[in-house]
Amino acid sequence: MTVVVPLSEVHVTDIVRLWNEEIGDRFPMSISLWNQNTTNEPNVLQEGSLAVVEGGKLRGIIIGKRYMEELDVRMPEKVGWIQCMLVEKSFRNEGIGSELLKKGEQALINAGVDEIRLGRDPWHYFPGIPLEDKSTISWFEKQGYITGGVETDLIKDVSGRGLYRLMNPSEHYRLLTKKDIPLLLQFLERVFPGRWHYEALHYEMIGGTGREFMGFFVDSELKGFCRLNDPQSPLIAQNVYWSALCDGEMGGIGPLGIDREIRGNHFGIDLVKAAANELIGRGMTDIVIDWTQLVSFYEKLGFKPWKQYQSMTKIVEV
């Protein structure tokens, strides 16, 4: 007998097993990552997060999300997300996916959402559908989702490589300290309000020390930032989600941003170089830059496309 139950009734080990059986060769899931991004994530909409169980075995899942935290960070309140949806291959083409999606979408609509995005949620796994999954993209198009841009993850093997040479004086760039975090938050709220500010606030809330941010300074004033992550970071950051695919140590770079008033002069590319140099100094063998359309910008530094995703959105008809 096939039944739909709340996702909260399913054990995390069963969810991770299903994930890894279906897509673990490309996106290896761990219990710690799942708990961070889903189990303990306050924006998961419980009514829209469901599981299909047949014969006592998990066969499919869907996770719906909308912004429900009280942090004032200009996150969209009318946007909902399908964080992920997965159905066991042997149970596809039997209407299970359609039923899950319909129930998940209705829960989001009932919660006041007028736009649904596939991925791109706070604490996301993907910024869209993996580009190689053409049949999945086509299936969602039939469900009323519209394709947008293609997002890319890039990677570079930096083992045995020398450091990058900056074009601007190196004193412009340094790791932030705990004392710098308020400056970072003020900068992000002013120049990059929304998701990046939200993520930095959470970093402060868990006691981040600043070692995950390279700062760009002009006359001692913070004018830009670059996030960098490694295995010792306090969170499993998006650009190191799939580090199990790497034989060595994977580090991550991004997001990054420069104050609009002073863009140019190679400040941005130097900021990436400074962050990469720091990760190389920490012993990273591979560096990943995730969720970007600036492929040619990063290719200048030797990064190569690694994974790509098709963004998709559905506007809810009232």
Rank of each mutant, 00 (worst) to 15 (best):
A237W: 14
F187Y: 10
N110L: 00
D121W: 05
W123V: 03
L201F: 06
K103R: 14
R92Y: 02
E212R: 09
L201N: 12
E94V: 14
K179R: 15
P234R: 15
R120S: 12
Q293I: 13
N40S: 11
L7A: 00
K307Q: 08
I62K: 00
E249C: 11
V4D: 14
F267V: 13
G194F: 06
G224F: 05
I146G: 07
W291G: 02
P231N: 07
I62W: 01
H172Y: 09
M284W: 01
K156S: 12
L294R: 07
V158R: 06
S30A: 11
P28Y: 09
I129N: 01
S98I: 03
S220V: 11
R174S: 08
L18T: 14
G104N: 01
L71A: 15
I258H: 00
E88H: 13
G210L: 05
L271I: 01
R59C: 14
E171L: 10
M284T: 07
T209C: 14
F192L: 00
G215H: 03
H172I: 06
E132S: 06
V158Q: 02
S90T: 12
I116L: 05
E77C: 03
F91S: 11
L154A: 09
R117Q: 09
R260A: 04
K178T: 15
E278M: 12
D219A: 09
S159M: 11
E199M: 07
R165N: 15
F27T: 03
P76Y: 07
L188I: 01
E41A: 09
I269Y: 03
F27Q: 04
D153E: 09
G281M: 10
I280N: 06
R74G: 11
G104A: 08
V16G: 01
G302C: 09
Q232A: 10
G302P: 09
D290H: 13
R120Q: 07
F126C: 11
D157G: 06
S98W: 00
G252S: 04
D114N: 15
F267K: 11
I96P: 12
Q238E: 14
K307F: 10
Y145W: 00
L58Y: 10
G224S: 06
I61K: 02
D133Y: 14
I129G: 01
V318G: 13
K304P: 02
G149M: 14
Q83I: 00
L301S: 04
Y125A: 00
F192W: 06
R263P: 08
V5D: 14
V79P: 03
R74M: 15
Y309E: 04
M68H: 04
S243G: 14
K223Y: 03
N168A: 12
H124S: 13
S138M: 12
G248Q: 09
I253R: 05
K273D: 07
E21P: 04
P169V: 08
Q46G: 12
V52D: 08
I269M: 05
G210T: 12
M214G: 05
Y241G: 09
